[in-house]
Amino acid sequence: MRTRFVELAVGAFIVMGIIALILMALRVSGLSTADAGDRYTVKAYFENLGGLTERAKVSMSGVTIGRVTKVYLDAEDYVAVVEMEINKSMSTLTTDTSAAILTAGLLGEKYIGLTVGADDEYLEEGGVIEDTQSALVLEELIGQFLFNKAEN
């Protein structure tokens, strides 16, 4: 009877551990059950990323539809290249979609905001977003403002 209790307790302990791991995955880290096959990759070239990093959100109208997967500098053209994964459920992005680097709040994290265009054709795997708008860098903005003030 005693060993039975011990075995039951250990079994319950391990089950608790597994449940905790599942809760961590779903409730805390928000791991979705959708696997990587449900996404497609598009590229965009920016003049200045201003602090955009990998794993940043890609959103349209405030709804997250993907994530930035890779950020690097093009060695020939000296422009920043951003690769992002978009959910397959948003496969109707037109080829003239525009991308802008936005900031959540005044000092919050950077993310990419997409605005849909009017074209008939849709972006596909490996497609490039042509119309991009760089991040607003606060220092440049203040510099410009001071410069204008001085001229007046």
Partner: peptide, 19 residues
């Protein structure tokens, strides 16, 4: 509370590495 947590906690980066 839960939404910001889910947006910034990565399963591999945080849960598995802590484990």
């Amino acid at each position: 509370y839960w939404g910001n947590m889910q947006a910034s906690v990565g399963f591999y980066e945080d849960v598995i590495k802590g484990l």
